[in-house]
Design a protein around this nucleic acid. Sequence first.
DNA 1: GTGAAAGCGCTAACAA
DNA 2: TTGTTAGCGCTTTCAC
Lengths: 358, 358
Amino acid sequence: MEGLHPFAAEGKRSMQRATLREVAVMAGVHPATASRALNEQTEGLVNAVTAARIKKIAAEMGYSPNPIARSLKTARSESIGLVIPDLTNPLFPPIVRGVEDVLRAVGYSAWIVNTDNRPDVEKAAVQSFRRRNVEGFVFATAHLKHPLLDELAAASTPMVLVNRRSANPDIPSVTSDDAAGVAMAMQHLVELGHTKIVHLAGPQDLSTGLNRRRAFTSCLEDLRLPAEKERTVICEAWSEQAGAKAMGTLLDSGPEFTAVLAGNDLLALGVYDALSARGLRCPDDMSVVGFNDMPFMDKVSPPMTTVRIPHYEIGAEAARLLLEVLNDPSRHPRSLLLPLTLTVRSSTGPAPQNPATN
Amino acid sequence: MEGLHPFAAEGKRSMQRATLREVAVMAGVHPATASRALNEQTEGLVNAVTAARIKKIAAEMGYSPNPIARSLKTARSESIGLVIPDLTNPLFPPIVRGVEDVLRAVGYSAWIVNTDNRPDVEKAAVQSFRRRNVEGFVFATAHLKHPLLDELAAASTPMVLVNRRSANPDIPSVTSDDAAGVAMAMQHLVELGHTKIVHLAGPQDLSTGLNRRRAFTSCLEDLRLPAEKERTVICEAWSEQAGAKAMGTLLDSGPEFTAVLAGNDLLALGVYDALSARGLRCPDDMSVVGFNDMPFMDKVSPPMTTVRIPHYEIGAEAARLLLEVLNDPSRHPRSLLLPLTLTVRSSTGPAPQNPATN
DNA sequence: GTGAAAGCGCTAACAA
DNA sequence: TTGTTAGCGCTTTCAC
């Protein structure tokens, strides 16, 4: 704390921002009256002519209310906390933009924090946000079991989850329809003649990992495809390395298969690595489908067939939902399941007659 | 504002956070004494035994100071503003993490804003940050001429630019050594036998676009390569589309050439597009070098040879520089030029004997 | 319709 | 070494 003198040059009176009291003095009214005139909600309480005069003077003086002082008094902030696990994952920045755009339109802003997937960082960030009177939260970090979120929910903290859901049904969320996405991908593979399909599942403590795996299993049944247990491998993380490792396991000791449905694009990239490490070609020897359609998935080699989720819209809808709750706390929060589409590129092709796997 | 009741359930006394006054009462001292005991800088002013007692009680009560109240009083915030042009550009998230990590270690935090490259959004964000008493800024949005930055610099606002510099020499920055990077790339191409090289330059109102273009021109001279003016095309934006368009122009009406140095990776991706649109192969017909080594550039087809800049370190160093200035405002701010490396992948190869260009 | 007064929670000058 | 006092800038009862 010592020795910090930010904006020292602004100590000069000339640079100082006008204060409410100064506006009031100029207008010849009491600060309270000026406050009322300058606030939409209370403007009606003050004589229209006086209000107009006050507003004119305030504008001339370049007055704008001090948000710190206001926040101290009102315990509000016109801000929400946006908690992201990893900003370097290209999935999240478009979500952030969706949130920001919607909030900005109503004068709110988002305070973003990157937790690096660390619960301790998340907890500290949430604490810090609360001390700063954020009015609600958007979490992209949800685990199915997530004590911190349960705690906040129990305290009726306004919040919305994005991308991932919690097992706690009281917490509203905006996610894509994972089951539908898996079904589309499977349908596509079956139409290409694939019957021997495997799934690289993501971590099962996340709704995305769990739901996609369950949907895969259901699809196998619905489509009457071979469905032994070994058709699914659960990856340790949503990472390329984990995907490569899991794919290696399947190639070594899994069943015969001609297509892979990866739990997300990063895992699918790992599949690419495992394939080229063994001299297998995609899609000739093996078809691969990803999930998310992250930026640049059209540029990788081969361009990846993947389930496209509406990143930006997820963020935007989450912000809208949150604003609804803030405007009417009695409102029962809804969860939204957004539709997704299959983007077909060249990582999927006709099933080979002679599978490269044993 | 109306109707917002955040954390309504926390109105309950039991959930309320302890206040300084409450701690003071429990400890049987005046709030001012408690304040002194609880602040590192002033702890020495208070009797060691009393101080210990106060701290113990504060801990038991779970006391933590209200940052809003503190900020209102002190006009500080332990926060800085971090201004990013576009978070969906993979170049920036690692920089953000560098900044955050360094700040977090000293108890500071960064308030991130995405300007979408819009000066109005940037201006509003800066205003908003200042009203919230940020102690300084990190800007990733700098233009060579940038009135807003000049204004802040004139007011001695602590700030550091990242990735891009300003023409204003008073503003410290942390950037990579663009000229050195260009030289490395050119050296590499020449070693592969290329002599006919062109440059896709970025916007010339940005230091990155300008410096890389100038370095390219110097390299042509130094290496005694053909150096007509048409060897450089200036792109309208750092985007794939702009790169494709510029490359099209060169292929249609430019000089004979066998290699392209792109101003950044996005432009280089546009070059890929233009090449495949004309049935040209990379690197057989044309070598391509990018700049930045954004995430996934090892995954595109062909994997891209590109100049790697130390994204994370740029952010981290910027935060360190800013903290230095905050701790000692009299300190003359330095600018840092970080070294970079060439990452050779398969988008560059031996110069073809018969150039595909006219 | 307007003013007076109080106070959000904290820190800093001054006194004792 | 500690307490007193004042105030950061704003909003919000309560009077009038």
